[in-house]
Simulated scan of single mutants.
Amino acid sequence: MALVFFPLISLLLLLLVRTDAQTVGNLTVGASLSADENSHPWISPSGDYAFGFHQLSSDKSLFLLAIWYNKIPDRTLVWVNSYGILRLVTGLQVAVKRLNTLVHGHAEKEFKTEVNVIGQTHHKNLVRLLGFCDEGENRLLVYEYLSNGTLASFLFGGLRPSWIQRTQIAFGIARGLLYLHEECSTQIIHCDIKPQNILLDEYYNARISDFGLAKLLMLNQSQTNTYIRGTKGYVAPEWFRNLPISVKVDVYSFGVLLLELTCCRKSVDMESSSEERAILTDWAYDCYLEETLDLLVENDVDAQHDLAKVERFVQVAIWCIQEDLSLRPTMREVTQMLEGVVQVPAPPCPCPYASTA
């Protein structure tokens, strides 16, 4: 059974919060909140945390989430809105994602099973799922909070991250995907690898977020419905060809992301001064063929002095973005090539069909 109730908390449990009064919806923070028969306490898959949920008034975008855990205070109260913005009242910092999908019957049971699988994944390059809520029609996922935000903000912000930082982030993402594909108890295909779904901890280590959500969001879809998940610019060609979806879609997306990390720019830049540079995957392959890889990192002194690694990263990326998915490497092979454990063979043209059309 994927969801069990915390045995030490009664249904009449009071959630005590800090005493300075704040009004949120129709509930005053600083008063007590009772869990009744319609709002059972529930625990995380790991058993480390227990949660309580309370809807505020008729506005479904406002709710209270209570969290009990072992390490810091006994009781913590957080309220968030439907956009996932949280206000921490005291104690543990968390991030909350609200799923806008309804599941019933068999799909509801599968939802709990899948969330349980996600909750049991433990890897230093994954964002940890602390728990989930399935109170009535509410579907909430509670994650650990990471202070340095997304890779997108870090990579495409005003200051260029160092070459060493970018290479370490690439290694971390590769290892996290390898774990999801081959090392956790149930294989997980992410389906939406992009800079916005990579978070950075206090030491700027890469942590993959939102893994496992693709299957959760498709539980209410027909199995014959080829609903495309992912983000434009990172989506593998097989999504559009009614082909079976495998871990190779993540490999493709990682290849695009690896080029972004290498060049410190977005995969699509329609405002580029040169049309040939607008699509990063095309430009990178052209530079590789013409042996002008220095152009990809022309404003990066550290990368300019490490062109051997730049070439290795670009070669691996080209293998990852092969249109023919059978040519794409596994994430284990990708990790070995990135780390220099094995030699990277010369990659073929990633889009042979387009080039011969």
Rank of each mutant, 00 (worst) to 15 (best):
S44V: 11
Y285N: 08
S185I: 06
N148R: 11
R312Q: 09
Q55D: 01
S162E: 04
D269C: 03
G91H: 02
W239L: 06
D74L: 15
V268S: 13
A346G: 00
I193F: 02
W42H: 15
E311H: 08
A35N: 04
P345I: 05
Y145L: 03
L199E: 05
S274Y: 13
G212K: 05
Q55E: 10
T281P: 04
S58I: 09
G149Q: 03
F5G: 01
I72H: 11
Q55T: 08
S185Q: 13
A206S: 03
D192L: 08
H54A: 07
S46K: 12
D300I: 14
I228Q: 12
E137G: 10
R87N: 14
H104T: 05
L327D: 07
Q336C: 07
A31R: 15
I169Y: 08
F51W: 06
F132R: 02
A357I: 02
A152D: 07
R166C: 11
L258R: 05
S253E: 01
L293E: 14
Y179M: 12
A152M: 00
R87M: 12
Y203K: 04
K309F: 11
E291I: 05
D20F: 12
V117F: 09
Q168K: 13
V78L: 15
C264R: 15
P350T: 02
Q196R: 14
L177C: 00
L178R: 11
L3N: 14
L159N: 12
Y234D: 02
K124Q: 09
T23M: 14
L62C: 09
A357Y: 00
R98A: 02
S57N: 14
A308Y: 03
S32M: 10
C320I: 03
C320A: 01
F132W: 12
V24D: 03
G47M: 14
P347G: 00
K266I: 02
G212T: 01
L280T: 12
L217I: 15
K60Q: 13
S274R: 11
T167I: 15
S44G: 15
D294F: 10
L3S: 15
K109P: 00
G105S: 15
Q196W: 06
I169K: 09
L258M: 06
Y288Q: 02
Y83W: 10
L280C: 14
F254D: 04
V235M: 13
S222C: 11
F51H: 10
P161R: 12
S32E: 11
S246A: 04
N100K: 08
G131K: 05
N299L: 04
F63C: 13
E114G: 03
L178I: 00
S61A: 08
K112V: 13
L99A: 11
L88G: 01
M331L: 15
T335R: 06
Q304H: 03
L257W: 01
H190F: 06
A206M: 01
N38F: 12
L146Q: 04
P237D: 05
V78S: 09
L178S: 10
L3P: 07
S162D: 06
L99V: 06
A66V: 04
M270A: 09
T281L: 10
F6L: 02
G30Q: 01
K248W: 00
S162R: 09
F6E: 04
I193T: 00
K266G: 08
E238I: 02
E290C: 13
G149E: 07
P7L: 04
G255W: 06
E135F: 01
L130T: 11
F5A: 07
I279D: 15
F313I: 08
I279W: 12
F156E: 05
R75N: 07
K124R: 12
A107W: 04
